[in-house]
Amino acid sequence: MSRRRVWLWRAALALLAVVLSSVLGARGVPVPSSLLLVVVLAVGLAAGPLPGALLGLAGGWLVDLTPPGTDLLGISALTHAGAGWVSGRATRVSGWPLWWPAAVAAAGWAVVAVVPVLRALTTGAPLDLVGLLVDLVLTASVALVAVPAVIAVDRRLSGRRPR
């Protein structure tokens, strides 16, 4: 029962992040390109590589399918699963410094961004380097604030002892 409740909370949070990214982006509000990434990283840090990868996969499918979707179906699912797995591997048993979520977010952002960047480079499309840098900073900043909060709620719901 507890496990179902935890996954319901994670799924609801992922859906909220995906819809917010799309709706706020359409209104010109500066948000990270993937708010979902922050949620996935938090769950990976809280619960480990497999739950992080599973939420990344499921949430990435939401990104792929939420209109207008991605031009390649499944690409967000795979990259977010990779980011969730990476964040799960970044868990530290003895706790972590305050800046750790931002560093993990930067690593997760790189995992998600590498495929589109490579696709753009191979087709000769111009790269918006400033835009990429702004997105990285936004993602790391939001992660710095939101990841500890998500981890706290996730651990409380799953009955794990806070570190």
Partner: peptide, 17 residues
């Protein structure tokens, strides 16, 4: 009206809803 934007890729936003 635009109600959603796709995840921007390195070229910027390329899909809208």
């Amino acid at each position: 009206r635009v109600v959603g934007v796709g995840t921007p890729d390195p070229r910027g936003t390329v899909r809208l809803t």
